[in-house]
């Protein structure tokens, strides 16, 4: 099974590289076929990990980031807006997927051992929602990067800005759902829903980052640019936390 998973992983990685190249060359039909094939392969890798470990593929550094790449790949395949420019939201989504695949190169690709608490509902909801939140935040960042690449003045009424904001809010909602699952898990496992430790502070830091992104005042183009920058930084912070957790 390990061999099959590794083969599928390498093939999906290669297909996403080809998808990005086809997208940049504006071979849209080929890009779409490649992206759907890569998505299917990534799904097969996750299914393989899930079957072999008898737990959802969302916990370890490798499977967790592949799960994020899978959701982001699905969004890139089906939820991207039509654009005129060559390096649009879709291309940025593929770049982000490749970034995730690139990070997973540094994680062990062994089948994770089956663990008792990895089949516990609230633990699954906690990690699953975090993965979803990171995917949505990265997809939102793809919109905001594309928005920032437009010539000034960039208006908040721009469709890209609005879609980016929608996915960022969806990401915040998903992250908070994960936090709720986390506090139930903590309450049942440790008798309290808050602990004074770095993991809790990191989660709160991410929530604050979301709050800053949604509370930046002002209506002119400069403030829209600032909102975009914060919205791009939020998934970077989330990804950093995920990588630190995966490494530790």
């Amino acid at each position: 099974m390990n061999h099959l998973i590794s083969t599928g992983y390498v093939a999906a990685f290669g297909l996403y590289v080809a998808t990005l190249i086809a997208s940049l060359l504006e071979w849209n039909r080929l890009s779409r076929i490649l992206s759907v094939t890569a998505l299917t392969l990534t799904g097969c890798v996750l299914a393989g990990i899930s079957i072999a470990s008898r737990q959802p593929p969302i916990f370890e550094g490798f499977s967790g980031l592949i799960f994020v790449a899978f959701v982001l790949g699905a969004l890139g395949s089906v939820a991207c807006p039509r654009e005129d420019n060559r390096i649009g939201v879709r291309a940025w989504a593929w770049i982000e997927v490749l970034l995730l695949f690139g990070i997973t190169l540094f994680f062990p690709k062994d089948i994770p051992p089956h663990r008792f608490h990895h089949t516990y509902l609230w633990v699954i909801l906690f990690h699953g929602n975090r993965g979803l939140a990171l995917s949505f935040a990265l997809f939102s960042a793809a919109h905001f990067i594309s928005f920032r690449m437009k010539p000034a003045p960039r208006r908040g009424s721009d469709a890209l800005f609005g879609r980016g904001r929608n996915f960022l809010l969806l990401s915040a909602l998903s992250f908070l759902c994960g936090e709720y699952a986390g506090i139930v898990w903590c309450q049942n496992g440790w008798g309290d829903f808050w602990h004074w430790n770095p993991a809790f502070f990191q989660s709160t830091l991410i929530i604050l980052c979301f709050m800053v992104a949604f509370h930046i005042p002002g209506k002119n183009a400069g403030f829209n640019d600032l909102r975009s920058v914060i919205a791009i930084m939020t998934p970077l912070l989330m990804l950093t936390v995920a990588v630190i957790k995966g490494v530790s």
Binding site: R155, G156, A159, L169, L170, L173, I183, F223, N224
Partner: peptide, 24 residues
């Protein structure tokens, strides 16, 4: 109260999905 807050954010997201409130 936490799920009430989550439901509120979800509802707000649905209500404002099609609008562009950022600088209107």
């Amino acid at each position: 109260l936490f799920p009430v807050m989550l439901a509120g954010i979800g509802l707000y997201l649905v209500m404002t999905w099609r609008t562009r409130p950022a600088d209107k």
